[in-house]
């Protein structure tokens, strides 16, 4: 998980893996929660640039982070989302809660 989560100010960037399924969801969940306990995060940006597969486990990961950030009045964005991932975000209804691809060409900050 090295360099997959980067914090800049109150913003946390989470670089998601190529496949976001039940096999790697737990580590993303625990790593990002650890940071959220330590820092005062207000914005979470999930970067799907490398992700070409996601299933409902991924929805659970995003939903879980959304619930915690909502408690402190923060927000969640998803960037570089491809059409197949977007289809899942839409079907799940989560597209109503988070911003999808609103910023184009956004690059992860360098640590």
């Amino acid at each position: 998980m090295d360099n997959l989560i980067i914090v800049k100010g109150t913003c946390m960037f989470v670089k998601l893996p190529q496949d976001l399924d039940c096999n790697n969801a737990a580590v993303i969940r625990s790593e990002s929660d650890k940071i959220m306990e330590r820092e005062s995060i207000r914005t979470i940006i999930f970067d799907f640039e490398k992700t070409n597969f996601m299933d409902s486990t991924g929805i659970g990961v995003i939903m879980g982070r959304y619930k915690s950030i909502k408690l402190v009045g923060g927000s969640v964005s998803a960037i570089n989302v491809n059409p197949s991932v977007e289809k899942l975000l839409t079907l799940s209804g989560i597209h109503k809660l988070i911003r999808i691809n609103e910023v184009s060409g956004l690059k992860m900050p360098v640590k």
């Binding site: 969801a25 409902s56 486990t57 929805i59 659970g60 990961v61 899942l88």
Partner: peptide, 14 residues
């Protein structure tokens, strides 16, 4: 508790 979304069968059907 493990953040399973409960959407698995829904996605299969969709």
């Amino acid at each position: 508790e493990n953040e399973h979304s409960g959407m698995g069968f829904m996605f299969m059907q969709a």
